[in-house]
Structures are given as C-alpha cells and as structure tokens.
Design a protein around this nucleic acid. Structure first.
Lengths: 236, 236
DNA sequence: CGACTGGTTGATGACAGTCAACTGATGTGG
DNA sequence: CCACATCAGTTGACTGTCATCAACCAGTCG
C-alpha cells in the first residue's frame, strides 16, 4: 500500500467567496514562500496539505502548523506584509491567493468576492489552534502525541472524512518537529500506543482503536496514574 | 524598593479609534472573563497588564500570553464569540472594549471609530508572537528564559520605555507557567544568568547587563557550546 | 540489485521535574 | 511594634523523562 494521497477535493469548505481565477496548483515538496519574503496576500488550502515552519538562527527547524483544506496560510504576514515563516507543500496541492487588498479594502461591501465574516471566523479558529498548541509547552511526550492524533482526527471529522483511520501526509520527522521532540521519542511513543492497544500503524497509515482513551491522555486524564488534581490558585 | 507599578499611560499606542466611552478600569487580580464565557467583543489594554491562561481538564494551568499596553485580548473569541481562555489582571489596568459589531460590521466605512487596518495589523503581530512562542516547544530552559527576557525588553523599547532595567508585574510562578517549566527550574536559570553576569535581579526588578549575549542564547548562538549548525533538509 | 531515505530500537547521559527544607518579604492582629 | 502566619522565592537531593548517538531494519527508486 503506497501513501499516495487522494488530494480529495473538499466541497464543504467555505471558499470565502474568492473567485477561482486566483486558484492554482503547486506540486509536492515545493516552497510557497520563505521567511522574509514579501507576500501578495494570504492563501487558502483547497486540497492537499502544507507545513509551516520557522528556522532559528542556529539552523533548527520548528514546524508551527500543518494546514489542511480550508486552512489559511501566511497570517503572520498580516502585520507588515512580510512572512516570518516558510511554507512547503507536503503533497501536490491546490491553493487560492487572497490578496491583501481584498482584505484591507476599507469598504468590504464593494468586494463581493471576499467573505469577511468568515475570514474573521477563520482567524479566531487559528488563534484557538495556537492556544491549544501552546498548552503542549508543559506536556510530556505521550500527551503531545495524543493531542496531535486527536487534533488530526477531529480535523478530518470536521471535513466529513473518516476520523478513526487515515493516512497522514507528513513523515515522522515532521510530526516530531511539530511536537517539539526527537524523532526517536515519537517513534517510541507510537510503539507504546500500539502496545497499549490504542492504535495500529503501518507506515503513514494510522488507525485509532480507542479514541476516547487517547483523548483522555491528551487531556491529562490518564486513569492509571490518577494524579490528584492540585488546583493551584493562579488568580492570586 | 517596592514593586508598585506605575500604570504608565501609554500615549504612543494607537487606540484604534475606539471612543473612550468604552474604556474602564479593572483592579488587580480580577477576572476579566473565564473559559467558556460569551464575550461582547475583544479588549485592548490601555495601561496595566493581564495574563491569559487556559486550564486543562486535569486542572493544570498554562499561561498563554502576558498582555501589555496596546495588546489585544480575547482574539480566540473571534471564532464564535466564546472564549477558550481566562484573563486575569496582574495589576490595576485600564481596558477598552471593542465590540464584535464594530469588527464584524460589513461596511467598515460607516464606523469611523474603528481603525480596521490597524486591527488587521495587530492580528498579524499576535500571530507572530504565537510563532515565536511555538519555537519554545523544542528549546531548553535557558533559551526559554532568554527569549522571555528579550521579548519583554523589546516590548518595553517599542513602547518607548527603558529596555535594560524594568520591574515585571508577574510573579515567578506566572513566568514559569508561561515558559512551560517548573518554578524551581526558572529560579535556578535566573541564578545561573546572574552568575554569568548577564543580569541582576532584586525581587521583581530585573536589570539586563548583557542584552546581546542574552539574545544570542535566545537564538541558540551560544558561543561556548558551539553547536555545529546541522542544517537538516526539511524541505524534502 | 544496491543506494538512499525513512523509521525503529537499544544504551547512555543530561536536563529538568518533584519533593522537601529553608529564607526572605508581606500582611495581620493583638 | 512585635509575633505570627502566609506567600513568594531559592536551594539541595533525587528521580524520571527524553535527547543523543549508534546500529539496524524496511521501503522506495533508479
């Protein structure tokens, strides 16, 4: 079984009313733009997937986000038109350019092709991801992995696809760079999840056998360690 | 020397054109809103400071962001009007409510009191913070601390304040929860920075003695360990 | 078939979390 | 104004998790 991806056309994703003339195809493992590039606008993923990452001065990469159909790319460019991140396609993808002028146009009512409320909604969704992702800073490896799996699965369900069995478009190294751990650690955690009967894996294909238990791990509600909820008084 | 804060009125912060009637004062250690609350809009910090945090199901807090004058609060509520995070003031603060209707109004040209381009700019700035913050996932304790110090210092400079000597409004526990480490680890790292002559501290007052060296640490360019920049081929 | 990339497993050491004790600062009531 | 309680911050000892280095296995491609 190969891990070629279906490039499924997603029909139930709001296309923000951008006319299709701005849509284009980009092949796998291509750069969309790099850190420091001046952007023409933001992009929306119609099909395929990309990874957004940032390279530190010391040359280490951190993957910030994987974008699936419906997701927006280049939001950090909203500050001044320059990107602080690099985007590479994971597979052949179809993207739509949403020019800054469509966004910044003071009188949106004139631009019928831009769905402004949905744009704002998407921004909120992105901030929510960032919050969830930030929570990982204090989480150990198994929770990070569990969170990734749940997050990925929930994303598929939202798009009307199978949520308990899927083929991920990224390699282990990418997932590890996303979760902030070594590839070896990720591999070991995956092996542990297998042994515990939580999932099955073959190459990039993953079948979640016990989603609720994985969700418990992600939420820190593991039954076996039974940590006593020490609610500290953070308000004070 | 007390660590009372000046509540400095910031004049060089763009107020987004929101009329002052929406401004209000909120005392220290008060909740602005909690996870799950329905919001009327987003808020802008005029003076003072707040912490934004999220509590996991297992009762652990993660501080997502500290907001200083000019910063926006409640952006995750843009998705559906409900907040996924809790906001508590660190000191007595002055905030301005920016109602969702001012933002979502299709025809911004009618609402002269809302500076839309600046709003978009601020969103980009927030995404940039989130990217920088995400980089911390794979960083060790000393880099996290260095990043925090540089980030805080740069923020002060941007507001026209002293960048090398300041008094932080948050306690050690807050900084530790923000950086995703134990308070003890933070304390030890601070001690190490002192011994290395990088900073002086007294209670919540911090004086940065060698900003460039701290910046080097944050960027992973520590001269003494001289890690060989193994540039891995992430694009492939 | 051989070379390469991607993925897994094992051994080891280092960094950081936890538990505990202690100090210093702040606040309260008598 | 002092005694006491409480909270914030620091330091020490120990342990566990995870990064690192290395070898190895599996799949893919020319």
């Amino acid at each position: 079984m190969s891990h070629l991806h279906s490039n499924t056309q997603i029909n139930n994703i709001n296309n923000m009313g951008i006319k299709d003339s701005n849509a284009f195809v980009i092949r796998e493992h291509q750069f969309l733009f790099k850190m420091g590039d001046q952007l023409e606008g933001i992009y929306r993923v119609n099909s395929g997937s990309v990874k957004i990452f940032k390279t530190s001065e010391s040359g280490n990469d951190q993957i910030i986000r994987f974008c699936m159909p419906g997701d927006l790319i280049g939001l950090d460019g909203l500050a001044d038109g320059f990107s602080r991140s690099t985007v590479v396609t994971l597979e052949t993808s179809n993207l739509t350019l949403i020019p800054f002028k469509s966004i910044l146009n003071q009188d949106q009512s004139r631009d019928k092709n831009f769905d402004y409320p949905n744009f704002i909604h998407q921004l909120g969704v992105n901030f929510n991801h960032d919050i969830e992702y930030s929570m990982m800073l204090s989480q150990c490896a198994d929770r990070r992995l569990a969170w990734f799996l749940i997050n990925y699965s929930d994303g598929l369900k939202k798009r009307g696809q199978r949520a308990n069995e899927f083929t991920v478009p990224m390699k282990r190294t990418d997932i590890a760079l996303y979760l902030g751990m070594a590839v070896e650690t990720l591999s070991r955690e995956l092996a542990t999840f297998c042994k515990r009967g939580l999932l099955k894996k073959y190459l990039r294909n993953i079948e979640l056998l016990d989603i609720e238990e994985i969700r418990n791990i992600a939420n820190g509600n593991e039954p076996q360690q039974q940590q006593e909820q020490k609610q500290q008084d953070i308000a004070a």
